[in-house]
Computed example of a mutant assay.
Amino acid sequence: MSLHFSVLASGSTGNAIFVETEDHSFLVDAGLSGKQMEALFAKIDRDMGKLSGLLVTHEHSDHIKGIGVLARKYKLPIYANSKTWTAMDHLIGEIPLDQKFTFDMETVKSFGSLDIESFGVSHDAAEPMFYVFHHNGKKLVLITDTGYVSDRMKGIISNAEMYVFESNHDVQMLRMGRYPWSIKQRILSDVGHVSNEDAALAMSEVVGEKTKRIYLAHLSADNNMKDLAKMSVTQTLQVRGHIVGEQFELYDTDPKIPTVLTAV
Rank of each mutant, 00 (worst) to 15 (best):
I44P: 07
V171I: 15
L114D: 01
M88F: 10
L55Q: 05
I64Y: 02
T234S: 15
N224V: 04
D62G: 00
S110F: 00
N136K: 13
G155K: 14
E205I: 04
K50Y: 00
G147S: 01
K138E: 15
H24P: 00
G147I: 00
M176W: 02
A202I: 08
E22I: 06
I95K: 07
Q185D: 11
S12F: 05
G245M: 05
V233S: 04
I257Y: 08
A217E: 02
N168W: 05
T21W: 05
G112V: 09
V171E: 15
F165E: 01
S25H: 05
H135T: 02
A42F: 04
L91F: 07
D45K: 15
M88N: 09
R72Q: 15
D89Q: 14
L27Q: 06
L27R: 06
E94H: 10
S150N: 10
T211G: 10
I157D: 01
S204P: 05
H60M: 11
K138F: 09
D45Q: 15
F103A: 07
L70I: 12
M129C: 08
L114G: 02
E38K: 13
A87D: 12
K73V: 06
M48Q: 08
K50F: 01
R46I: 00
E94D: 14
T107A: 04
M105C: 14
F103Q: 04
V244L: 06
Q36L: 08
D151S: 13
I257G: 01
R46W: 07
E246Q: 12
H58Y: 11
K35F: 03
P77C: 11
L250C: 10
T211N: 09
I243H: 13
G120I: 03
I116H: 04
M37R: 07
H4V: 07
T211W: 08
M203K: 05
K212C: 11
L140M: 05
G66L: 03
R240S: 13
T253A: 06
E249P: 00
I257V: 15
V108P: 02
D254W: 11
G177Y: 09
K138V: 09
V164H: 06
K139L: 06
A221H: 10
S2A: 15
V141W: 03
H218L: 10
E106K: 11
D29E: 15
N15I: 09
L3W: 09
V69Y: 05
R46M: 04
S220D: 06
A160T: 10
D222S: 14
L76S: 02
E20V: 00
P255K: 09
G155A: 12
V164D: 06
R72C: 12
E94I: 13
S25Q: 10
A229S: 13
Q99Y: 11
A71P: 10
S25N: 09
A229N: 01
A160V: 08
T259H: 04
H4P: 00
G49A: 07
V207Q: 03
L140R: 01
R240L: 12
F133G: 02
K83N: 11
A71W: 09
D115N: 13
S2Q: 14
V171R: 15
V206P: 05
V141A: 07
K73G: 02
V141Q: 02
G14C: 03
E38Y: 01
E127C: 08
A126Y: 02
D45T: 13
